[in-house]
């Protein structure tokens, strides 16, 4: 915490506010505030994350204008660039239509959240008010924008303890996350490709080969179009369980005749074509429910 305080105050010795600084503040301050509010009120999770990133970005610009360019760009790289990107990563995996639920699942959750949030805000404001009035800027950080070396020296000499503690905490957290995520005991071991093949051949799976893809031997490549077997009948396994299959146009098996150009009479092609326009198996039951599991 103290390192952050040092970073924030490294350049803020001059109390004067120039015109450019004021203009920038009145642009980015409202933007930061508005996007923070938008983050709270937006319904869509990805929009929330984006607005939060915008808030952090505006704050970073304010830092830069306050002559703390190192803090500003570190904020952009670390928070906007890495942390928020990981948030986005997870949100995108969750799905596009995941929206906030407005139903209160846990009883009393909102009241508890309100009380705790207010308490946290009170603590923060108290700490901030103290730091605004009584804390002195760290000596030796240097003046002006070229204070980078001074900052580095302070962090690695005077504030080495807090710095190392913070990094130890972060490394512990990272290792913990890895251990939890990669908890693979022998019971959860993944099968190799070969083991899967053998299991398939020994009949542990419903069938040896994968299910036929939709549209194989069919007239369209839509998922909703069932696959046709070489004799023109419908392959029951190709029907999707969740998508209503459409009727297929089975090509008229009497045409085209590959020998029509030769002038010979076409060979007898009266193969039983099943019931091409009916999405059901020959024995009459609906095939979608017939899959073995």
């Amino acid at each position: 915490m103290s390192t952050v305080a040092v970073l924030a105050q490294a350049g803020g010795v001059e109390a004067l506010t120039s015109t450019g600084e004021a203009i920038a503040f009145w642009i980015f301050g409202p933007v930061a505030l508005a996007s923070a509010l938008g983050m709270v009120f937006a319904r869509h999770a990805v929009h929330c994350a984006l607005l939060l990133a915008l808030t952090m970005f505006s704050l970073a610009i304010l830092y830069v204008i306050q002559q703390a360019p190192f803090l500003g760009f570190t904020q952009i790289i670390v928070y906007t660039g890495a942390v928020m990107m990981l948030f986005l990563f997870v949100l995108m995996l969750v799905g596009k239509d995941s929206r906030d639920s407005v139903v209160e699942v846990l009883r009393g959750q909102r009241v508890a959240a309100l009380v705790l949030g207010l308490g946290m805000a009170g603590l923060l404001v108290a700490a901030l008010a103290r730091s605004l009035t009584s804390v002195q800027p760290a000596p030796g950080a240097g003046l002006g924008p070229n204070n980078l070396g001074g900052l580095g020296r302070l962090i690695f000499t005077v504030y080495l303890g807090p710095f190392e503690l913070t990094s130890a905490l972060l490394i512990t957290a990272a290792l913990g996350a890895m251990v939890l995520a990669h908890a693979q005991s022998s019971t959860h071991e993944k099968r190799t490709q070969r083991q899967t093949v053998i299991a398939r051949l020994r009949g542990e799976h419903a069938r040896i080969s994968p299910l036929p893809g939709p549209g194989v031997y069919a007239t369209a490549n839509s998922v909703a179009v069932p696959a046709l077997l070489p004799d023109g009948s419908i392959a029951p396994e190709s029907l999707s369980e969740i998508i209503e299959s459409v009727a297929v146009d089975v090509p008229d098996t009497s045409t085209p005749d590959a020998h029509s150009l030769t002038g010979r009479s076409s060979p007898d092609r009266s193969i039983d074509a099943g019931e091409p326009n009916d999405v059901s198996t020959p024995d009459g039951s609906h095939s979608g429910t017939e899959k073995e599991s």
């Binding site: 990133a53 360019p69 190192f70 760009f73 790289i77 660039g81 990107m85 924008p145 070229n146 980078l148």
Partner: peptide, 17 residues
């Protein structure tokens, strides 16, 4: 900027957005 190298890194991390 005294942190010129960081600017390039920051820009690339914004660009990936």
């Amino acid at each position: 900027l005294p942190v010129g190298v960081l600017v390039v890194l920051a820009c690339s991390s914004i660009g990936v957005y």
